[in-house]
Nucleic acid binder design. Structure first.
Lengths: 163, 163
DNA sequence: CCGTATCCTAAAGGATACTG
DNA sequence: CAGTATCCTTTAGGATACGG
């Protein structure tokens, strides 16, 4: 798959029953792992943290968009391609497969000719969308303030360089 | 800055008062833009959509992590570097500057020697963290189901290839 | 201590062509 | 229609060295 041989490095394995970190799996000094103990709430800053890998998937260039569209209704491959401005066939295919593998999206092939393939969110997918939607809403609500912050920052920088 | 001359392509400019797209800024057929009209809720699938650019920033490899750490307390550069496993000085520096530019993080230089620099979340930063936290919590809560879905998918795939 | 500058590699992703 | 395969460009990001 893909150019070389790389295909999702070390994820498929070692997904035992999760959560239990084991007694110091890696090197390094002792620091917190899943401090869900109470108020503190720190998620693992380690590279091998599974949450980080899942988040990286979710937050890639196209996933959120595909999920948002599929939350509205079941869609076919070409429909999605049309709706998502700028996506290549390759990336749509890969994105959908990842989402399917993660149990976010369900793919249904109708054995007709020409073939018809439907993509729909799973229950977990809808649950995810509810959460990501909040993030998009936040971004939308704050985009003006962010734009303002950027302008201010850039102006300050420009002023400094003019000295 | 950076290798060549690239520096945040088309963002610094044209951040007028935001929101108003203007009469068909780009090419392309007419489709929905900010359908916040009512229930529909579709965020712009276009490439030039500002929300997408902001989300891409937020969802990069390190931002969420830095924000999560800073939500707990003010931290110094080297502290952050120590806490975030695997980050390079370069990326920490860049991440923090982006967040500062976006108004998420506030940077305070104490004119001592050796220099001491504090990083803290702004009000907007704390607000953002409240939202992203929900996403992390979701991921955490569903990681076992995701792992299971992956295993199932991989097994199905392996079975198909064995035919 | 807190960075920036330079160099370089690896991964993401687009374009295109081809298949069931 | 719904993809896969191949090739190639662009970007992200690590390593290192140096500066204030």
């Amino acid at each position: 798959m893909e150019d070389g041989t790389s295909d999702v490095p070390g994820i498929t394995a070692d997904t035992t029953t999760a959560r239990a970190p084991g007694p110091e799996a890696q090197d390094c000094d002792t620091r917190s792992r899943w401090e869900c103990d109470a108020e503190v709430w720190q998620w693992d800053a380690r590279e091998d943290c599974e949450v980080r890998q899942i988040l990286d998937r979710i937050a890639d260039k196209w996933s959120l968009l595909a999920i948002a569209l599929l939350d509205r209704r079941v869609m076919r491959f070409t429909e999605l391609k049309r709706e998502i401005d700028g996506i290549s066939q390759r990336m749509l295919s890969r994105t959908l497969r990842q989402l399917e593998r993660d149990g976010i999206v369900e793919r249904t092939v109708h054995p007709t000719v020409p073939p018809r393939v439907d993509y729909a969110l799973t229950e977990m997918g809808r649950s995810l969308h509810a959460t990501t939607k909040a993030l998009v809403v936040w971004t939308e609500a704050h985009q003006e303030r962010i734009a303002a912050a950027r302008s201010a920052y850039d102006e300050r920088e420009a002023a400094l360089r003019e000295l």
